[in-house]
Every structure is written in C-alpha cells, then in structure tokens.
Design a protein around this nucleic acid. Structure first.
Lengths: 194, 194
DNA sequence: TCGTAGCGATACGTCAACGTATCATAAAGC
DNA sequence: GCTTTATGATACGTTGACGTATCGCTACGA
C-alpha cells in the first residue's frame, strides 16, 4: 500500500486534548485578555491537568499563538455571487456581522494586544489579515473594471476605508457597526446611488 | 481679593508625584500592555515608593484609568484654516501622524484592551473618541454645504471610513498609514479629483 | 487480552506581586 | 525656625501562578 502520508496513527486523545485546550484558551483570551491569561486558568476551564498543557506547548506564548491561529481558521470566507456591488455588500455584511458578535470579535482586543507584544502573533496576524483582505480588494477592482464602481478609486484604499469603518466602530465606539448600514457605507465611500 | 477658586494650597509634592506616576504608568502600558502592568513596576519606573501609589489610587484600575485620561488630554486638537478640503487633509495628516508614532499610538493596543475589560476605561474612551471625531464630521458637513464634497455622502460614515482606514492600517497591517497617502485616501472616499 | 502511553489530579518549591505597616528624611507652610 | 506631612525605602505575610514530578487510571493499539 503506497500512501504518501503514512498516518502516524496518532493517539486520538492527543488531538482531543489539543482542541479542548485551545478552545479554553480562546475563551480565556476573550474574558481576561492577552496579558492576564494564565496556564492554570486555561487548565481549569478545559478540565485538564496543567501538565497536559506543558506536554503540548513549551510556554504561554506558543499556546496563545496556536489559539489565535485556530481562531483565524474558524473565520470561514463566504462565497458570494451576483453583481460586484451585490457581492461587496454581502461580504461587508458578513464582516460587520463577524466583527460585531463572534468569537473573533470577542478576542479582537486580545489579538491586537497580542500582536503588539509578541512577534510571532504579530506576524501571522498581519499575514492572515492581508489574506482576508485580498478578496475584497479584488472585488472592488472587478467592479471598477466592469464600470460598477467609480474608475478613479484605489482598490486597496477603498478596502481600508470600508473595512476600517467597520473595525473602527467596534473598537472606538460603544456600538458595533450595524449590518443594515452597510449599503449606506458603500454609497458614501463610492459616492454612488442616492 | 475675590477668587472663584480659593486654590486649596495643595502641597506641590502631591502633584509632582501624580504626574511622575501617571507618566510611568503610560510607559508601562505602552511596553507591557494592560493586563501585565503591575503597581511595583510602575513604582520602580517612577522612582517612587509603592505606598505613594496606594496613597493616591485605590487600585490598579483607577490608576490606569487616570493614566489613559492624561493620554487623551495630551492629544491636542489642531486648528486649521483653508478650504474644507485643505482643512480635512491637514486634520487627517495629523491623525495619521499621531496614530503612526506617538505615546497615543504606542498605548493604543493597551487602551483598546483596557476599554474591553474595564467599564470606566470603556466609558471615557468612547466619550473622548466621540468628541475627537466631531470636528472631522463637522468639517465634512461643511464641505458638503459649500459644494466641495459630494452632496449625498453621510458625514458620520465618511468620517468612520477616513479615520477607520488610518486606524485599521495601524492595527491590522505591518505598516502604519503613511501621511503622504492621505490625499489619495480622501480622493478615493470622495471620488473626487483625479 | 495485555502492555503502552496519555491522562487528571495533586503536591512541590520558587518567585513575583499584592496591599499594609513602619520609619527616617526632607520639603512645605506658617 | 518649627511643625506638619508627603515621601522613598524596606519589611512583612499572603496569594497565585510558575514549571516539574509523581502516581494511579484508563483509553488506545496490537
């Protein structure tokens, strides 16, 4: 039997522990934040012995980095169809929804803090955000090409403005960006419709 | 002598301690973040006895809240003149500058984290940001009234988009928003010029 | 069915920060 | 000058997290 991955027959207990611990770490990050997370509280929350955590991760930073990676992977991109304007609206509605209320949203302050303090977190945070932005930028470029959007705008800057407005609202005001306001936001930034 | 404020003749040592300690707290927030700040490290950095801090603040949260208040007050608003477009450009250049490199910028992640964890920090953070946004919104509304800006845009949303792009860049990418790109940002959001 | 190995629980010594108390020093105010 | 008072330094007991070690237990794989 030729198999490229011999499947090292990993003990399922290992993977189960990993998942339970990482999820508990995310819950802790959401509740206590980056600087106040402790291995012991994660272990308590996960219903796991401290030693089990140290078996899988050398230190707190490695655990947090893995937890954030899991968080990023949980943000599934949404496939949308329709006109560029319709696609953009759906994508931004989804972003507004996720940024308003989701595990990602509740961990966002801790993620920002983590990226500021730890090089590894910062690296994949920026990398992942860059990747997550690409479809939006491409969407805007498409819309310009088809004439749906004004021709002179800079797609990257437009994406910064649209996404930035939503994130800004979450972090700097007392109310998240309401999904229903997405069309008006697009109208404002693209100065279209009426 | 009639004086509305009798000046309670406060011992200058008290005010000096307050300032030194608050500045040290800001430095700690910038370096260690919200959750990892300790009273002892602030005392060490300020060259002050621990007891002096406890004499002035009941706990860590009160100290941090006061430190953030000082930080906000240090952001002096800039008075600008010229056409609405020129004024807006100068204001946004100033914002891009402050958000890229300043005590405010280096404390921003800690401020976001602090606002998430502590109700008092959150309240004045949101309040101050709302106040700081008002001139920009008014500026945009003025520009619409004078015909410098497109008539149909929502001034508040436009401000969210412009400011949001700058903050988004600081927090979600590996490079702060370059000041020189402010004109292009305005052009993109207002779809004007060429 | 049996040996292996990952597990939870627990105990351990270490360390750092907590918040309080004390004390001489020195600056402030009269 | 003399009293008051805020200060820096230091010591204190307490707490909680660190990271390691041990030990039955049991799910796994053969």
């Amino acid at each position: 039997m030729i198999e490229s991955r011999p499947k090292p027959a990993v003990d399922p207990r290992i993977e189960r522990s990993r998942q339970v611990i990482l999820q508990a770490a995310l819950d802790e990050l959401s509740e206590s934040g980056y600087g106040s997370l402790t291995i012991e509280s994660v272990a308590r929350r996960a219903g796991v012995g401290k030693a089990t955590i140290y078996r899988h991760w050398p230190d707190k930073i490695a655990l947090i980095a893995d937890a954030f990676k899991l968080l990023q992977q949980q943000r599934d991109p949404e496939l949308v169809t329709g006109s560029p304007r319709e696609k953009l609206e759906r994508v931004l509605r989804h972003v507004a929804d996720v940024v308003s209320d989701s595990p990602f949203s509740s961990c966002l302050p801790a993620l920002i803090e983590g990226a500021e303090r730890d090089r590894a977190v910062r690296r994949f945070h920026h990398h992942f955000q860059t990747e997550a932005r690409k479809p939006t930028i491409a969407l805007i470029a498409d819309g310009i090409a088809t004439g749906d959007f004004p021709p002179r705008i800079d797609p990257e800057l437009a994406a910064f403005a649209l996404l930035g407005a939503i994130f800004f609202c979450r972090l700097m005001t007392n109310a998240p960006f309401p999904e229903e306001r997405v069309p008006t936001l697009i109208d404002t930034v693209f100065n279209s419709s009426g």
